[in-house]
């Protein structure tokens, strides 16, 4: 039984890693097509680095990810605090709205934002479809995730701590800054990290909300894949895989040390 389970796990891990390993191997393959390994080369990486557009797309992706994560984390944290601490009219509506970006398929989200932006551009004359609209779209789904993560952290906290702070004469914002926020910090960090990952990974919402010049790496990968399998995409994929593996390993090592 035990052995069967081990075999099963081995096969599943093989299933998970085989495709990635193949891509990594092929990115160093001299042959343009097919899977026969005919020789080692770094040509595909060279042609990738010689393409200035790839760097631009990379920077665009980072810009969108950082700005949207920053805004979404601030908005989401405040919203979570408000939802947990206060009662106000419309609270249950907001709670339902929070779940929409989480559960609704991203195609639906993409087209509804497209409709909104098209209408706004027609009536108000802005916003232009650009990196700006992409950022707006990303913040929208990020806010929901950040709020939910931070809220679940806040719900675990002991409200007595804040009361104690108030009893000791702390003002509202002082309580928030010196008590609530430090206690909620792991939730805020986890929410921000999740938001960042979601933004870096997002293709669908970006696809519907991007305008000219607003190409991000996922959009570039999509259009390259649409044009056919190419070793240059293998190389780009390998770099992205390596980069995410590095950061994940870093996070893993850091959390391990603390435990």
């Amino acid at each position: 039984m035990r052995r069967l389970l081990t075999l099963h796990a081995l096969l599943v891990y093989l299933f998970l890693y085989l495709p990635i390993l193949v891509i990594v191997a092929l990115s160093f393959n001299e042959s343009r097509r097919g899977v026969r390994f005919i020789g080692f080369t770094l040509d595909w990486y060279r042609s990738l680095f010689q393409d200035p557009r790839v760097l631009e797309y990379f920077l665009n992706t980072l810009l969108v990810a950082f700005v949207s994560t920053l805004v979404a984390t601030v908005l989401g944290t405040l919203l979570a605090v408000g939802l947990v601490r206060y009662r106000f009219p419309g609270k249950s509506l907001l709670r339902y709205l929070l779940y929409i970006p989480v559960v609704v398929p991203d195609v639906v989200m993409g087209v509804s934002l497209l409709l909104l932006f098209a209408l706004a551009r027609e009536v108000l004359g802005f916003p232009r479809l650009s990196l700006f609209t992409v950022i707006l779209g990303h913040i929208t789904f990020q806010v929901a995730f950040v709020t939910l993560v931070v809220r679940s952290r806040l719900l675990l906290l002991d409200p007595a701590l804040e009361e104690a702070a108030r009893d000791l004469g702390a003002r509202g914002w002082q309580t928030f800054w010196h008590v609530t926020l430090p206690l909620a910090w792991p939730g805020v960090a986890a929410g921000a990290l999740l938001a960042l990952t979601l933004s870096l990974d997002d293709f669908v919402v970006t696809f519907f909300t991007a305008g000219p010049g607003a190409t991000t790496l996922p959009l570039y990968i999509y259009s390259s894949v649409k044009l056919g399998v190419s070793p240059k995409v293998h190389a780009l994929s390998t770099l992205i895989i390596g980069l995410s593996a590095f950061f994940l390993a870093l996070g893993y090592a850091l959390t391990r040390r603390r435990v």
């Binding site: 193949v22 992205i240 994940l248």
Partner: peptide, 21 residues
């Protein structure tokens, strides 16, 4: 960690990998 690693590389790359295979 090993389960999540392929999962945190880009979604499109995961789909593309199967195209290649």
């Amino acid at each position: 960690f090993l389960l999540l690693l392929p999962f945190l590389t880009n979604f499109l790359i995961r789909v593309y990998a199967w195209l290649v295979l």
